[in-house]
């Protein structure tokens, strides 16, 4: 059964078509790299998957619990790490073990301190804990590798592999293709709001991150 299914979805902003007639579906355990140039519609599509906006046409079906890591870290500066994770965990029946996650992202010693005292790296690790805690069925990640420090990149890749191992579906929109290709099982490649490629990750992408742009891009 698909955890994510789009049937002929389009999104218009006024008369401008941001996305046109997209159809795709993904099974649990898929890791989808959402690729495309700036303005191709990646963030618009990700926002629709997150439920932040609705398709103008077509239907988008999402099954299970969704977790989003967007451009903002999605945690409250006025609360401590423990208060933040407690809040997000208690919103759902299987919210996750807060102590275990604080340990996992190495924030247990500073768990009671307010977030404004945290370094950038600590805040990023807390955001990762908030995103992956409680075993969500669908993970939506918008440029997750951008501005992460080395430790956070390693932690993110480990968390992604662990989530895939338990059968979660991951959609990650990124320009940092080499990092994404290590995990991606599928690629959705958007060009000017249209689906230019939808299928398994081509082997060529492992060694040549621009291959899909050359092969399926508008220039061709």
């Amino acid at each position: 059964m698909s955890v994510l299914k789009a049937e002929r979805i389009s999104k218009f902003f006024g008369h401008f078509p941001a996305l046109r007639n997209l159809s795709f579906s993904f099974e649990p355990g898929s890791c989808v790299a959402l690729l495309g140039r700036n303005g191709a519609g990646k963030t618009t599509l990700l926002e629709m998957m997150a439920g932040l906006s609705r398709p103008t046409e077509g239907t988008l079906t999402i099954g299970g619990r969704v977790s989003l890591l967007g451009h903002g870290i999605g945690v409250y500066d006025e609360l401590s790490a423990r208060e933040n994770l407690n809040f997000f965990a208690s919103l759902h029946p299987r919210g996750g073990d807060v102590d275990a996650w604080l340990e996992k992202v190495r924030l247990k010693e500073v768990a009671e301190a307010p977030l404004r005292e945290y370094s950038r790296g600590m805040r990023q690790r807390l955001a990762l804990a908030r995103t992956f805690m409680g075993e969500p069925d669908l993970l939506l990640l918008d440029e997750p590798f951008t501005s992460l420090d080395d430790k956070a990149v390693a932690l993110l890749q480990w968390l992604l592999a662990e989530a895939l191992g338990r059968g979660a579906t991951i959609v990650l929109s990124t320009h940092q293709i080499p990092e994404a290709m290590q995990l991606a099982t599928h690629i959705l490649f958007l060009e000017k709001g249209k689906l230019a490629y939808n299928g398994p990750r081509p082997e060529e992408m492992l060694g040549d991150s621009k291959w899909i742009y050359r092969t399926y891009g508008v220039a061709n």
Partner: peptide, 8 residues
């Protein structure tokens, strides 16, 4: 944070 709450 609002996006996170709506998405979840």
């Amino acid at each position: 944070c609002l996006d996170i709450l709506i998405a979840s």
